[in-house]
């Protein structure tokens, strides 16, 4: 089902869009419940569960101890028995304390069982930097999860996609990692792009997992991005209107990766810039380049430009962090280089 967006559609934050998606699924499906740290009365540190505790109470919105291996493992157990847990890992950086449950269990059980056991759970987690939270609280890490087979990985850039992807994730019979960048949540206490608040239909709708969106049509250069970096790319694309025609592809999902959308656009433009806040090497940007190289390297008229997080831990001081982060200026420079 595709929802329609008209001028009268109300505008909400991405945080509100996510919590609304969960609430609507919880109303229609008693098997859905939420657990994690501070998801109860606090409403999630980044607002992803705002208002849920008030509506559903402590039996379905469960504050956990700081025991990620325990409660993510418990999510797996509930899921294999047919429930549909939404489990919050407060910061993706904390996956280090619980990854065995995630990659050796959640992601592999369906395959190991020869398809006999399903693990329909969602892990939602906050990613990203830009506000000086330093090395242990600012990473994106979607490629780390994407590298391990068996998990779908999504990362919306705006409220509309966030709601539709969350509903898809909850209904999916496979485990889904739902990664929300703190900067797209529309939080009142963090600087944000206006794109973090946008039109969201009140009714339930889905955004398909594995399908990219053309966020801005263009013909001179393809810019492929995901999550908050899409917002920067759209700012640049709009700024360059009239001089350079920029096509922005919002991947929305990292697994499955919509390779066709990338190839179709690059076939049209012949030029590719990849913008990714995750680490540069061995990750998403390399996978996108490999997608072109595998299919037809002659699609490219110029070498690819990658605007990614360099291969260094994320520093604290603002001057250091912004030296490393993908920014509009770096995106513009990359576009200028491939279109020169």
């Amino acid at each position: 089902m595709t929802a329609t967006l008209d001028a009268g559609t109300r505008r909400v934050t991405t945080a509100k869009a996510i919590s609304e998606a969960i609430a609507q699924e919880m109303r229609s499906d008693p098997e859905v419940f939420v657990m994690g740290e501070d998801v109860g009365p606090y409403g999630g540190i980044f607002g992803s569960t705002g208002g849920l505790f008030e509506e559903f109470g402590s039996t379905r919105i469960i504050d956990t101890p700081i025991s990620e291996t325990g409660f993510i493992g418990a999510g797996i157990g509930a899921a294999v028995e047919g429930m549909r847990p939404v489990v919050e890992l407060m910061f993706v950086d904390f996956f280090g304390v619980c990854f065995d449950q995630i990659y050796n269990h959640m992601a592999k059980i369906h395959y190991e069982s020869g398809g006999n056991v399903k693990v329909p759970m969602v892990i939602m987690t906050a990613v990203g930097g830009g506000y000086s939270d330093a090395a242990q609280h600012s990473q994106c890490l979607w490629a780390t999860f994407a590298h391990m087979p068996g998990m779908k990985v999504v990362a919306p850039s705006n409220p509309y996609d966030a709601k539709g992807l969350m509903i898809s994730a909850i209904r999916d019979d496979s485990p889904v990692i739902f990664m929300f960048h703190k900067g797209v949540m529309g939080l009142p206490w963090m600087a944000k792009n206006p794109r973090s608040i946008g039109p969201v239909p009140e009714e339930e709708y889905t955004v398909p997992i594995g399908k990219a969106a053309i966020a801005h049509e263009g013909s001179d250069v393809t810019v492929v991005s995901v999550s908050i970096s899409v917002q920067h790319c759209l700012d640049v694309a709009e700024e360059l209107e009239g001089t350079t025609s920029v096509e922005v592809i919002d991947l929305r999902s990292i697994v499955p990766l919509d390779r066709e959308a990338i190839l179709t656009s690059v076939a049209k433009t012949g030029r590719l810039v990849i913008v990714d806040e995750d680490y540069k090497s061995f990750g998403l940007s390399g996978e996108i380049v490999a997608t072109i190289a595998d299919k037809d390297p002659s699609l490219l008229k110029k070498p690819v430009e990658r605007v990614c997080y360099p291969d260094v831990p994320i520093p604290y001081a603002r001057v250091l962090e912004y030296e490393a982060l993908p920014t509009r200026d770096k995106i513009k420079a990359a576009i200028a280089k491939v279109t020169a």
Partner: peptide, 24 residues
Amino acid sequence: HGKGGHMHLFAPEQHFSCSGIIGQ
């Protein structure tokens, strides 16, 4: 040198360190 910030203070002379990850 500005890399660590308030949750990642390292002072080897005092054998002092801290971490932002709970319990680690």
